[in-house]
Design a binder for these strands. Structure first.
Lengths: 218, 218
DNA sequence: TAGATTGTTAATCGATTAACAATC
DNA sequence: TAGATTGTTAATCGATTAACAATC
C-alpha cells in the first residue's frame, strides 16, 4: 500500500498480470502460492516476483509463501480497484459500442456512467445498459458528475482538441483508442493508449522474424 | 533490413511509433528530419533514435539527417508491411465487427481475407466489405488459403483450445483480444495480446498515483 | 572549407537475477 | 527442530545516454 520511493514503470505494468493470475488461482480453489510456483506459471523468475511485491512492502510469509486472498486484496488496493472511480465514454461508434456491450469496466476499477455521441440516431439508445447522451450535454454532465476518466473512441482527428477540453474541465485520466498521441503527460494527466495498429504491426514484424528463424534452422 | 545480432524487444516495440511519426511528417510535407528534431517530437533522446536505427544498418547521412521517404520505406521493410501477409478473424461479435468495419488492416501489413462465426444469423453478412463465414468451414478454408495469422475476438474460455488448433493447422501468428494468456511462445508462434483490462487497470493505478502526487504538492 | 549531424564507442543508469541470512 | 520460502543485499545484465571522431 505504501509507495516508498517511486515504483518503476516496469513493475506497474506487471501488476495487472499478477492480479489476473491470482484471480485465476483463486477460481481454481488455491489458498496459497510460492514465488517459485507463480514464476513458473507466469514465465517469470521467483526473484523478480519477490522484488516486485516488496516494492509495496512485501506481503508474504517465510516458509509458507503468499496467501492468495491477501495477495488479491493487496494488489487490488495498490491499483485502487475498489476506490469507486467513474468513467464516461466518448464516441458510440462500433468500437465504443463493443466496449459498452462487452467490456467489464468495474472489474478494472471503474463505474461507467454513460456514453456521448453527436449522432442523433444513437442518442437515447442503450448498449450494455449504458445510455448514449447528446454530445451537447457533455460539458454540463462533467460539471455535475465529475467523472474521473474518459474513454476516447472518437475519430482520430478530433482527439487532441477534445482531450485538451476534457482535461480543462477536470478529467484526470484518458483511455485512448484513437491511435493519436495526445501529449498530455506534461499536465500530470495519465493516458493509457491502445494503439491497435502498433500492436498489429509488431505482430507483422514478429511473424517475419519467426519465419526467418525457421528457415535458418532447416 | 539486415538483422545483425538479435534486435532487442524494446527497439522492436518502438518501430511502429517511429513509422507512425514518419508518416505524419510526410503528410505534413517534410522531406528530412534530424534525430534531434524527431527526438523532441516523440519525447525520446536523439541518441536513442540513432542507436535504434543503427540496429538495422543506419539509414541517415552525416550533416543532413534522415530522408523521410527513405526512412518510411526502410521501416516498412523492416516490419514487413509490404510482404502481403494474410489474416482471418474469428468471432464476429461486437468487437470483431468493430474491427471489420473500422480497422485498416492493410496499413498494418495484412490483407483480411474473411471472418468466421458460429452464429447462423451472422453467416453470409458482410462488415466493412468482409464476409462472415460458417465456423464449420474454417479448417477447410485454412487448408486452401493458408492465412498467416488469425485475429481472436472469440469468448475467453474457448481461446486456448482454438489457438492450439489454429497453430496445428499452420497459423503462424495470433492477434489475441480474448484477455486469456495463450502460452504459445514455446512453439515459435508470436502472439500479440491486446489485454484491455490490463490497460484500464494500469490507468486506474496511474490516476491514483497522480492524485497522490497532486496532494503532496499542495 | 565550415557547420551540421550521423555512426559508434564508452559511461551511466536501471532492471533483472543470484545468493543468502532471517524467520515462519 | 528441520524444511521451506521469504525479504533483502550484492552481482549481473541490458538498455539508455553521453561523447566524439567520421563525414556529408
Amino acid at each position: 500500500m505504501e509507495r516508498k520511493q517511486e515504483v518503476s514503470k516496469a513493475v506497474i505494468q506487471r501488476l495487472p498480470r499478477y492480479y489476473r493470475n491470482i484471480c485465476e488461482l483463486k477460481a481454481e480453489g488455491e489458498q496459497r502460492i510460492s514465488s517459485k510456483a507463480l514464476a513458473e506459471r507466469m514465465g517469470l523468475t521467483a526473484s523478480q516476483i519477490r522484488q516486485d511485491f516488496n516494492c509495496f512492502g512485501g506481503f508474504g510469509q517465510q516458509g509458507y509463501g503468499y496467501n492468495i486472498d491477501k495477495l488479491q486484496e493487496e494488489l487490488g488496493a495498490i491499483m485502487g480497484l475498489r476506490t469507486g472511480r467513474t468513467a464516461i465514454l466518448l464516441g458510440a461508434g462500433n468500437l465504443g459500442r463493443a466496449l459498452l456491450n462487452n467490456f467489464n469496466f468495474s472489474a478494472s476499477g471503474f463505474e461507467l456512467l454513460c456514453a456521448f455521441d453527436a449522432n442523433p440516431q444513437l442518442i437515447g439508445q442503450r448498449f450494455g445498459g449504458h445510455e448514449v447522451r447528446s454530445a451537447d450535454t457533455l460539458v454540463e454532465f462533467i460539471e455535475c458528475n465529475k467523472p474521473d476518466v474518459a474513454v476516447l473512441t472518437i475519430p482520430r482527428g478530433d482527439a487532441p482538441r477534445i482531450a485538451r477540453g476534457l482535461v480543462e474541465r477536470g478529467i484526470r485520466g484518458l483511455w485512448n483508442f484513437t491511435g493519436e498521441d495526445l501529449h498530455l503527460e506534461g499536465l500530470g494527466v495519465p493516458v493509457e493508449n491502445v494503439h491497435l495498429s502498433d500492436s498489429l504491426m509488431t505482430l507483422c514484424h514478429l511473424v517475419g522474424a519467426a519465419d526467418e528463424k525457421r528457415e535458418q534452422n532447416l
